[in-house]
Computed example of a mutant assay.
Amino acid sequence: MKIGVISDIHANAPALRVVLDGLVESGVDQILCAGDAVGYYPFPNEVVSLLQKHDVRSIIGNHDAAVLDETPSEFSINAKRAADWTRRQLTPESKAYLKSLHLAFEETIDDREIYMVHGSPDDPLNEYIWEEEVNERALDFWFDDRPELVILGHTHRPFVKEISSTTVLNPGSVGQPRDRNPRSAFAVVDLETLAVNRYRVDYDIDAVADKTGEYLPRKLADRLYEGR
């Protein structure tokens, strides 16, 4: 069985459509999302609709939570403006979807124990976990019984790391990559072997940037071209 893994879409529907096409072409049986469906970009309802259409199993991210409640004070000014704008745009159906999302995903799929969280097991919404921080000590701190696959998001920077019998994966960001590569990121995991294939795909950045500039800070559009 193969699963697709995505994260940090941030209301970038054109990017998500290309990624979903790639996952379908890869023959995945199921898609998991490590949170932040919305925030930053101008297609929140379209993204929620696409996730539902493709039966994507998602958890909540910090930007998803922010648009359902009061915008966190620690958000940057551009993130605050985007969250406040998004809150006003969401349909009742989209709000209900976001409210239904859990903080963490813990399930056995095809005999593999999978744990997925947006930030970290210790702080599901807000802690950034970078590749260099993933080691034996971190896994021992997070888990009494280690899962075989741990999926993280939030940093917008992809990595995969094998620590003993546990594979730790961050698929990177669909909608706002921050590793100086502007192409959308996603991953496919073969659960039989736990082999991970990572992908980058182009999408129409101009279309997203132009629409973003109509409603949201131009800096959010400009950063898409640089992958930062």
Rank of each mutant, 00 (worst) to 15 (best):
G22Q: 02
S173I: 10
G175Y: 12
R180F: 15
P158E: 10
S184V: 06
A138C: 04
P121I: 10
H156R: 08
E148K: 05
E70A: 15
S164C: 12
F141H: 14
D110M: 02
R137V: 08
N78A: 12
I3F: 08
D21A: 14
E74T: 03
S173C: 11
Y203I: 07
D122Y: 00
K2A: 06
F141L: 15
V134G: 14
D206P: 05
F186K: 00
Y128W: 11
F43R: 04
I6M: 06
K2T: 02
A13V: 05
A221K: 09
L20D: 01
A138Q: 13
A104C: 07
T71Q: 02
S100L: 00
L125H: 03
G172W: 01
G39I: 07
G227W: 00
T108E: 14
R137P: 08
R200N: 09
I31F: 00
E136I: 06
A83T: 13
N197W: 11
I151L: 14
F159V: 00
L125S: 11
D69W: 06
A82G: 11
H63L: 10
I109E: 01
R57I: 14
L16I: 02
E70Y: 06
N181C: 12
V19L: 11
R218Q: 08
D179L: 05
N170L: 12
L32P: 03
G39V: 11
D179T: 08
D110S: 15
A83G: 02
I129Y: 09
F159Y: 15
S58W: 02
D140C: 05
M1E: 00
L50E: 13
D110I: 00
E46C: 13
G22D: 01
S49I: 05
H63Y: 09
P171D: 01
E192H: 13
A79R: 12
E131I: 06
R112W: 01
L194V: 04
T155G: 11
S58I: 14
D190I: 11
S76E: 07
Q89C: 09
D190L: 07
T166M: 04
G39M: 00
D123P: 11
Q52N: 08
A11D: 07
V19T: 07
L194Q: 09
E70Q: 10
D179V: 09
V38M: 00
P177V: 12
S58G: 05
Q89P: 02
A65P: 00
L98F: 06
Y97F: 15
V47Y: 04
L220W: 01
D210G: 00
D111W: 03
H156P: 01
V48I: 15
P182Q: 07
K211R: 14
F159H: 04
N126E: 14
G153C: 04
D206W: 05
K211E: 12
E93M: 05
C33D: 14
L125K: 08
E133G: 14
R17Q: 15
T86F: 02
L125V: 08
R17M: 05
C33W: 03
L90M: 10
T91F: 15
V168A: 07
M116F: 04
Y115T: 11
Y40F: 06
S73D: 15
S73M: 08
R17I: 15
H54I: 02
N126Y: 13
H102C: 02
F141P: 08
P147K: 13
I59Q: 08
A209W: 02
